[in-house]
Nucleic acid binder design. Structure first.
Length: 261
DNA sequence: ATGGTGGCGCGGCCA
């Protein structure tokens, strides 16, 4: 059986729950990582997902942030913090699902280059890189996915000139992303030919989605052993076209089962 | 257009 793994920043799971449930029914992923659930843990709609055939682990907070992993198989050995970072913001959720170690990330946005939030983002990324080095040592099959809030390359930006040096595109952020790849992680989206101007996020303002003025900031990275089994990766723009959408579209990667090797 | 939209929650922050 192949393995289908997806990520989706839903920008409030309360608002988007019906869309997520519909999408799970249509796409039937094995694993879905959610970001910006904006829910405390007691408010998480565990039963709705159970009725849809999915287990859930989650790390949430009120109003901001919040991450969750939905999976067909149980998710075990959860981790909710970056080592060395004492942080109330709920942005990290690691768990093991079957043979795969899953690390779900909601990377800080960074607000503006030079701001306090930008410094926090770069520090956060430093701690992430150090931790993922150890995770790669521990887990041959590792997927690191989520909202990275980094457009890795000019190809991932609708207007690279306008965005040059801006937050989400700045060199320090891109260097941090490159260091993730230097650890051995592969950007599964770039393992395959893709349409030009493929993005995963479009601002709510200025009719950005209709004009395809977006960025590719949601990513699915895979360890070497898992990347060799990757058969596809694409953005599913369908939910972005709905009424009251998230500003992000889901990204889906598919992998052959280890027995298919 | 120094704005624009959306979520949370009811003023202002965050994206």
């Amino acid at each position: 059986m192949d393995l289908k793994i997806a990520t989706w920043n839903v920008n409030s799971l309360t608002v988007r729950l019906p869309q997520v449930l519909n999408w799970l029914g249509e796409q039937q992923p094995d694993i879905l990582a959610l970001q910006e659930t904006k829910l405390t843990d007691p408010a998480f709609p565990t039963l709705d997902f159970a009725n849809a055939g999915y287990q859930a682990v989650f790390s949430g907070q009120k109003t901001y942030n919040g991450v969750a992993i939905l999976s067909r198989l149980p998710a075990v050995d959860p981790v909710t913090d970056l080592p060395g970072l004492d942080d109330p913001q709920r942005r990290v959720l690691g768990a093991t699902v079957g043979e795969v170690r899953v690390v779900n990330l909601y990377v800080p946005n960074g607000q503006a280059v030079g701001s306090e939030k930008y410094a926090y983002k770069l520090d956060w990324l430093e701690k992430l890189i150090a931790w993922l080095q150890t995770e790669l040592d521990r887990h041959a099959c590792l997927v690191v996915l989520g909202d990275f809030n980094i457009a890795p390359d000019d190809r991932d930006v609708h207007d690279p000139t306008a965005w040059a040096g801006q937050v989400l595109c700045s060199e320090p952020e891109r260097t941090a992303f490159r260091r993730l790849l230097d650890l051995g992680l592969r950007d599964t989206f770039r393992l395959f030919p893709q349409e030009e101007r493929s993005f995963s996020w479009w601002d709510y303002r200025a009719a950005a989605f209709r004009r395809n003025l977006g960025l590719r900031i949601d990513h699915i990275l895979a360890s070497p052993a898992l990347a060799t089994r990757c058969t596809a990766c694409q953005v599913d723009k369908t939910p972005r076209r709905l009424e009251r959408p998230s500003d992000h579209a889901p990204v889906i990667a598919e992998f052959t089962a280890p027995t298919d090797l």
